[in-house]
Design a protein around this nucleic acid. Structure first.
Lengths: 194, 194
DNA sequence: GTCTATACACCGATAGAC
DNA sequence: GTCTATCGGTGTATAGAC
């Protein structure tokens, strides 16, 4: 047990260091030697935990994805009406992105890179399936416009993503921020609700 | 003149080759030697035109940006009403993305990479300024909801971008495609119009 | 302007001691 | 599990002939 904790700790330190450096310099301009140094370990130890650099990159991505997934699942568990659930989805994602700026930036970089091919399709779907099921129900119940599920999903993701970009760049004060989130959710809702 | 044409031709070939390889393998997994080979020239010649690999990457980005900019400027010149202009903006962007898949994929990769820092802010703004002015006018005239210009711009870009992603992945038939574009534009319009 | 040949730095990964 | 030392491969960029 003690052993395992130690392992996780080192692994986590490597992932932390890698995240920080990847976001600043990009995957390729970040040598494993620098990651090891930043993590406070030797190069040999890094490769003991992650057999290749690629595996490290992928592991980091999956780690972040799962953390965000947990956060969202937890936050929506208390809501009941569909609109409230969706709003929670929206706000939680934006809040998480604010508190985990590097993680978001990294995911963005990863998603639009050829690395994405290395991830199995079902691994990707795992995190979006719950939301898609929710949306399908809402369509069936006449809460949302009767449109193609994939388009609907795309619209919501795109909206969330772009408002997130805006919030990151403009850095509004907390009260202003909440207002923007609330108002842009209303706009989204207006677009997709029946 | 003949000299200049020859130069442009070689440069263009390098940019073509680089685009193709970057999209498939990513920036870092594409050595300059392979770019030169794909372009049918020697490594030395490549560095004669582009002093560093970074400059090549940036030049490619600016080249693509400017081509898309031209296309849009041209296409909207004949429209008169604001709604028609915006729709033309929307459809032209999506059509261009369809015909220039690699270019779009590359821009996406570039935009979410640390390379973006290498581009001057005004260089980026150059291409978005015309649209922003248009939007400001529409707000002032009461055609669009009175909201923050930057948010409005973000919303439109995000919408366009995400529908583009959807169209690329789902590859609908031409008639279906046109229907999707038309309907999603209506959704966008519903969201932003006064 | 274009080529060939090559310098030389760097990086990912391994070997082997502890 | 962790370190140090190092190898082999690769990639950017240059030098110099044509």
């Amino acid at each position: 047990m003690v052993e395992k904790c130690k392992v996780m700790d080192k692994k986590a330190k490597v992932l932390d260091a890698a995240l920080k450096l990847f976001v600043e310099f990009g995957f390729h301009n970040t040598p494993t030697s620098k990651i090891a140094k930043e993590a406070g370990i030797s190069s040999g130890t890094l490769f003991y935990f992650f057999p290749t650099k690629d595996e490290l990159v992928v592991a980091l991505y999956l780690d972040i994805k799962s953390k965000l997934g947990c956060e969202i699942t937890e936050s929506i568990s208390q809501e009941t009406s569909f609109k409230e659930i969706l709003k929670k989805y929206y706000t939680t994602t934006l809040d998480w992105a604010k508190e985990h700026r590097d993680e978001f930036k990294f995911m963005e970089q990863f998603n639009s890179s050829p690395y994405l091919k290395k991830i199995a399709e079902d691994e990707i779907q795992k995190y979006v399936k719950p939301l898609k099921e929710l949306l399908q129900n809402a369509i069936d119940e006449g809460v949302l416009k009767n449109m193609d599920l994939e388009i609907l999903f795309t619209l919501i993701s795109g909206h969330t993503f772009s408002i997130n970009q805006y919030l990151i760049i403009s850095e509004p004060q907390e009260s202003k921020r909440e207002q923007i989130i609330s108002e842009t959710f209303d706009l989204l809702w207006q677009m997709i609700s029946a």
